[in-house]
Design a binder for these strands. Sequence first.
DNA 1: AACGTATTACGACCTATGTCTGAGTCAGCC
DNA 2: GGCTGACTCAGACATAGGTCGTAATACGTT
Lengths: 212, 212
Amino acid sequence: MTERIIIADDHPLFRAALGHAVASVWPDATVIEASSAGEARAALAEPAECLLLDLHMEDSNGLSVLMDVRQDYPAVPVVIVSASEEPRVYSAAAQLGAAAFIPKSASLPVLREALQAVREGDNWFPDTGDEVEDDDLARISSLTPAQRRILEHMRAGLLNKQIAYELSISEATVKAHITAIFRKLNVISRTQAAMLAAKLDVDQPAADSTTS
Amino acid sequence: MTERIIIADDHPLFRAALGHAVASVWPDATVIEASSAGEARAALAEPAECLLLDLHMEDSNGLSVLMDVRQDYPAVPVVIVSASEEPRVYSAAAQLGAAAFIPKSASLPVLREALQAVREGDNWFPDTGDEVEDDDLARISSLTPAQRRILEHMRAGLLNKQIAYELSISEATVKAHITAIFRKLNVISRTQAAMLAAKLDVDQPAADSTTS
DNA sequence: AACGTATTACGACCTATGTCTGAGTCAGCC
DNA sequence: GGCTGACTCAGACATAGGTCGTAATACGTT
């Protein structure tokens, strides 16, 4: 009987590209496309050789789909395909039983290498080079409440004088806090601090994905 | 002579998928792949029929690349390819002179339809119905090239001195440009300007699963 | 050629930002 | 009580940021 490979991704073009790569590793496999987590689960009702799973789909909450699938079909290796390049997401996926993690920025040879490894029963994860950059998130969460309030106002583009007025403290205190914030965030100007705060405020999903 | 079509996207697999679609619309064209904004600009040194441009690449932070390209090569139609589904981004791209906007979630037939329209000199944008307007966009696109360059550097958190060095101009000139930028963007500090630039240039495909 | 306008450029000048030193209060903790 | 950490503030200081006036260049108009 032919092997069934399920590709779950909500980007048709990307499914097509993945399909080509799959075909070169499993030449005789039947490729089943799914554009949502629901379709992927439906496709799993019949035995499958492998599941390529996108983390960003309309009806999916990130890694929770992976959890579900691993629970219900532990025999099916799951290859996570994600736009994320965050090492924290790699390791989260690994802990949840993914067989491989492929960033969408991967090239075709890399993709084939990963799929080949999975076919042979191995795991495959991106090479992060051991020591990852220090974590912005950890740094920002080390701020004290007063420092966080001030960072919020900095981000809004207020002057120190305005921040002092808003928080009913002196400008000297604002400056003192700001100096402490810069140290903790490892930046040297209020613009960098504000950009960092803004970036991390949008990047909530990375921090949130393991707790749901 | 053969037509040159440039595909700029940092995902090799997606470039391949786009290449297939392009080949079906421009059968005899030469497809040139670029994996960064820099490579795309280099490829534009020779006449090109069309540029397919991803908004999210390593060395680019969004729509600023589009601005630059439109400025330097107004004759080349630019098709924006983005993971974003935000109507606000569509209209931003339209205002900045993009010929088309294709969400990465588009199917192959839709993609072909858009490319065909561009080939015939038309525009093509996703069907959204209601109008979105953005004063900020109009303001930011009124910046001169020098001002835009400086805004980009401001956004990266550089000091005026560093910007001056990068652009080989004096710090006094940087300051003068910054003052002009503030007036045009209607802000009063570099932090506000940087936040505004970041907000409008956003194309955050990697971080949109948000909360459960 | 003469003109207006937009852009880029610069220096002088004042203000905002950020650092450093030092110090006071308050709360929790061993 | 002694210790620590968070929050508060002030004065002095150095530097970065921002405004203003001014000028050279470029480009299109008349």
